[in-house]
Design a protein around this nucleic acid. Structure first.
Lengths: 221, 221
DNA sequence: CGGGCTAATGTGAATAATCGCGCCTCCTGA
DNA sequence: TCAGGAGGCGCGATTATTCACATTAGCCCG
């Protein structure tokens, strides 16, 4: 038994916990995030999470109460780090169409940098689990402001606004951005390039910007 | 145990298998289709499928070799019934933009009538399973024709074609359509209406048509 | 300076539930 | 009577979870 223990003292991180191996709980979150995003909550086993971290599954319970709590911690971290860069943009921006484009492009870059939130939301939406509403609310509250606030309530979408389809248009562009990452394998196959490369990001940005400008410019048939 | 069995003799389907209760294998396919679409392959248990049909799980093996074969039968049926109405359109249509709109709208109606194919593809794309490529190929081969065939290769997308983004635009509109059904709970929450109602379908069609016309009309910044 | 306390974090073993799947039996309808 | 299709039973694997431990690091105290 115990042929050779993979034990290293793990450099004593007296004060600087910044460099070198992260705390175990962070590494658990990293592994669980990827697995939940890829396979969904039910299809992810704690044993697999533990394997990736390099520990046994019972050890997970030293850091998280149970599987559900682990999922919520993953979700919490994702939502927080996704919203942070957007809050700066949100408070400082004027209300013209150019800033709407900037806003959407920032979201594209966020999902491109870490596709896991979009994947998690897609899994939740598909299986209609209890997390769906929570994610939706926290993710979209910055987009749909309270009535009276005119942030996203102007005539940005030109003809579409006149048709009463403004919220539908907001949803559509958001889905467009998110489905790009949740459908990444499709892009890899059909376009023959890595969908997360810098070139692909540039093309995706050009596409989104062109689509937005098209809609802004459109004045009805 | 066995408080009250939900057993009805289920009217004898002597010859007319057309009306009334379908053959068992069809009912298995129906149940499995919904469950695979909702929870994905790994998270769906055969016991759950059997429960929905009203039989015990070992009886499933009288109709399908194993879980994998059941999934492939579900997929086969979905792909076949999805492509059937489109083939008529495909062969008969001229090549102008109005027919591209008709084509896209037909796809919208198909996914609206049965969202399960889109959900299945989304699950496959997320977990990167071995089915992904098969679905993609069979679903998109009518859209991307062989080079030389100009079906989807004209200047439909105006400025976007000039940017070399035509395939990206095709993918984008397809994702738009599919994400509407895979993200249905989001629409229910944020827009406060049943995303599969006739009104919602009409609005979705208007949105897609307007977006297409916008792009068609756009001539660069 | 050393000894013991505590909290943190790891381990293997064990449990109950559930999974896919195969074997065998029995019933029923043509 | 005979075969297809249903159920019963059970195996082996995997699941989340709990438990009874080891081992470590830091801290207080004499």
């Amino acid at each position: 038994m115990l042929p050779d223990l993979p034990w290293r003292p793990i450099v004593t991180e007296s004060i600087s916990q910044n460099t070198a191996p992260l705390r175990t709980s962070e590494r658990i979150l990293d592994a669980a995030e990827d697995l939940f995003a890829q396979k969904g909550y039910a299809a992810t086993s704690l044993g697999e999470v533990a394997d990736r971290v390099g520990i046994r599954s019972p050890s997970l319970y030293n850091h998280f109460r149970n599987k559900e709590a682990l999922y919520e911690a993953v979700l919490e971290r994702l939502l927080e780090e996704f919203g942070r860069p957007l809050q700066a943009l949100q408070s400082a921006q004027a209300l013209d169409q150019e800033h709407v484009i900037e806003w959407v492009e920032a979201i594209v870059r966020q999902h491109h940098a870490n596709p896991n939130l979009a994947k998690l939301l897609q899994h939740a939406a598909l299986s209609g689990g209890p997390h769906t509403n929570e994610i939706i609310e926290r993710l979209f509250s910055p987009m749909f402001r309270a009535p009276g606030d005119e942030a996203m309530d102007g005539d940005y979408f030109g003809h579409l606004s006149r048709l009463g389809l403004q919220p539908w248009a907001v949803m559509a562009f958001n889905n467009l951005v998110m489905s790009y990452v949740t459908m990444a394998p499709m892009y890899r196959d059909l376009l023959g390039q890595d969908p997360f490369s810098d070139e692909a990001l540039a093309q995706q940005l050009t596409l989104i910007r062109t689509l937005l400008k098209s809609v802004f410019a459109y004045r009805g048939e």
